[in-house]
């Protein structure tokens, strides 16, 4: 998630700005780790169906790669559209 979406820090005193910025960093770290976990869960669920072996076969691996790449591209596009709507909402104020 783009940091700029999380708010405008310019109006704060220096000390609070630092603290707020540290808080945003923490939220971003947590968010990327959660995103990683969700992506694994999603692509595993969609791509791995048989449990006759303990290793991924070629087809499953290809499916997982495409799933992950597609999700990342999707996520980027959603981010762009979302930012546009946010900007629209902000300028309406």
């Amino acid at each position: 998630m783009d940091k700029s979406m999380l708010g405008d820090l310019d109006s704060l005193p220096e000390e609070d700005k630092l603290r707020m910025s540290a808080m945003i960093d923490q939220l971003q770290i947590r968010d990327s780790l959660r995103m990683y976990n969700s992506l694994v869960e999603r692509c595993f669920t969609d791509c791995v169906e048989n449990f006759r072996r303990k290793s991924l076969d070629k087809q499953e691996e290809t499916c997982v790669r495409r799933c992950a790449e597609k999700f990342l591209k999707h996520s980027m596009r959603v981010g762009m559209r979302f930012a546009e709507l946010n900007q629209g909402a902000a300028t309406q104020d």
Partner: peptide
């Protein structure tokens, strides 16, 4: 039981595979 063992193993592999894709 054997499904669980294989499932954990494959889940682990998917975690590593996607970890690589994410550049970590």
């Amino acid at each position: 039981n054997s499904c669980i063992d294989r499932c954990v193993s494959k889940y682990w592999q998917v975690t590593n595979l996607i970890g690589q894709l994410l550049g970590s």
